[in-house]
Amino acid sequence: MSDKPSFVYVTYIHASPEQVWAALTDPEITAQYWVHRNESDFQVGSPWRHVRVGTGQVDGGGQVLEADPPRRLTCSWADLDNPAETTSIFTFDIEQDHEVVKLTVTHVDLADEEELRDVAGGWAKVFASLKSLLETGAPLSAAVMLPG
């Protein structure tokens, strides 16, 4: 059993599982609420890249480990300087729960408490922005998503 930190975050969204899946995997949609394009064909074994809108800077990426649309997506997050080195793994679970979708991210094998704090803050923003976009048409502002 890994003794590295892990993080779980849940939200509920008024949308269909298909809409939530598209919002996580379509770079045109992730660009709107995540200020990054998630670029991949999201087939198992394919690479994926997390590319910052505007600058085109690659802020991360890794490999698609599991893809079961519109229910489950697991990706590795790799070291940019050493792509063969997986640093952590995250899974999205999408479940219909009455009239809403329960969206869970489980992020495991985090390096340390500092990375845990960073990803905890990051996922809360990303899911809040995704929920706002799908429910109201307006994501959180880029200034909130990319402070500083």
Binding site: V10, T11, Y12, S132
Partner: peptide, 14 residues
Amino acid sequence: WPQILAGLKTLVEK
């Protein structure tokens, strides 16, 4: 709590 606060966010943003 995630359910309650998701509901709060939906209500306030609506």
